[in-house]
């Protein structure tokens, strides 16, 4: 009797210790994850913050040894990203609508869903090579449009997926109620379902923007870059990621400093966008 109680106490102690160890590990791993975030951001602030002044936003990229900023690259990035989303979002939302609203018993829906995930996981550099082959070579020049298209291909699967997920969250009773009132299907979808899932769809689009605004690899062979202000998207357009890449790898200190400032800028904006999306999503729910 006494012995049995002893065994139980030691077993209990062992269980407690194992539990304690594992939970300590889980705290440590969380700290480990946060540690990298802090280190990365600290590096960016340390190298970039002192060069992030007004001229970065007002002056175009300089040649080495002269003062300048990143204004043309910032504007170019915004424009290319925006066009990429405008190309990708309508297709993405409609395709997501199809998967959620029309393809419930359709046999092609799982195929589309799978193919969409393939596109989602396709390495972005491969998408860049693809757009180079189908746009840059036939049109005969690099262009902002080619860059936008490459980014649209990255944004598309994200939007398809979030749209489908978000539309599925809309309770079926809402659709049924609208249909029962005699509204045609498209009207139910557009004015009832879309409205209900508005926040969710917008979240997907914003997430896609956050994702594509930092992409470098696909822009290397498509939008290329431009030292000056571009007059249209039909020619090579300056963009932040490629400028950061080129300046960081250059021998000149002033260029490297601009690269760090740009890196800080792009990271802050992407992080802000993500935080906005998250707060938005929470209030939307």
């Amino acid at each position: 009797m006494n012995g049995l109680r002893n065994i139980n106490v030691s077993l209990y102690r062992k269980r407690r210790i194992v539990n304690f160890l594992i939970l300590t590990c889980s705290i440590l791993t969380t700290l480990f994850g946060l540690f990298w975030l802090v280190w990365l951001l600290a590096t960016l602030f340390f190298h970039g913050f002192k060069y992030l002044d007004l001229s970065v936003f007002t002056q175009p990229t300089p040649p080495p040894g002269e003062s300048g900023g990143l204004a043309n690259a910032i504007a170019g990035s915004v424009l290319i990203t925006l066009m990429g989303v405008l190309l990708g979002a309508p297709v993405g939302v409609l395709a997501g609508t199809f998967l959620s609203e029309y393809a419930i018993r359709s046999r092609i829906a799982p195929v589309i869903r799978f193919v969409n995930d393939v596109l989602l996981s396709a390495p972005s550099i491969i998408l860049g090579v693809f757009v180079y082959e189908i746009v840059v070579v036939p049109t005969g020049h690099f262009s902002g449009w080619a860059g936008s298209l490459a980014l649209a291909l990255i944004a598309l699967p994200i939007i398809v997926r979030t749209t489908e997920d978000m539309l599925k969250l809309v309770p079926n009773t809402v659709r049924e109620a609208a249909c029962a009132l005699g509204a045609p299907r498209w009207k139910v979808t557009v004015s009832i379902v879309y409205r209900a899932a508005r926040a969710g769809i917008l979240t997907g689009v914003l997430l896609a923007i956050a994702r594509i605004s930092g992409e470098t690899a696909p822009l290397l062979f498509t939008a290329l870059n431009n030292q000056f202000w571009s007059s249209s998207l039909n020619e090579p357009v300056a963009n932040l990621p490629v400028v950061i890449f080129q300046f960081a790898m250059s021998p000149y200190e002033d260029w490297q400093n601009l690269a760090w400032a740009g890196a800080l800028l792009i990271t802050i904006s992407v992080l802000m966008l993500n935080i906005i999306v998250r707060t938005f999503l929470r209030t939307g729910k």
Partner: peptide, 22 residues
Amino acid sequence: DIIFANGTRICALLVFLIIVAI
């Protein structure tokens, strides 16, 4: 209704076509 349904279908097929093209 038909236009809208087919519009969404075409967009979904576009995703498929892109992968095939790649």
